[in-house]
């Protein structure tokens, strides 16, 4: 890093790394939806609704994706429960 960069970096946050982080998250999410069947988003919101009858969870608590292993399709469901307080 050059002499002047030190002062520059103190002045503003480096936005390029924010851009990269945000893109990696959104692109990964959109890819997992894209590769799966069309009903996945609806299924995801239905499951979220069912879980909410019993537990209070965040909007992004349910993650769902289809993985292909050879001839076999595996539906992977990931539910993040809130930490007990």
């Amino acid at each position: 890093m050059g002499f002047l960069d030190y002062f520059r970096s103190q002045q503003k946050k480096r936005t390029a790394s924010m851009a990269k982080d945000r893109l990696q998250v959104i692109v990964a999410r959109e890819r997992s939806h894209r590769d799966g069947p069309d009903y996945l988003p609806a299924l995801q919101s239905d499951i979220l609704e069912v879980i909410r009858r019993y537990i209070e969870v965040e909007d992004d608590a349910v993650r769902i994706q289809v993985e292909r292993e050879g001839d076999c399709e595996v539906l992977e469901l990931n539910v993040t429960l809130p930490e007990e307080s």
Binding site: D5, R8, S9, R14, T15, A16, S17, A19, K20, L23, Q24, V27
Partner: peptide, 13 residues
């Protein structure tokens, strides 16, 4: 200056 995504970042994403 860290203000713009680099080519490496874009290729990686």
């Amino acid at each position: 200056k860290g203000e713009m995504l680099s080519v490496e970042d874009i290729c990686e994403i």
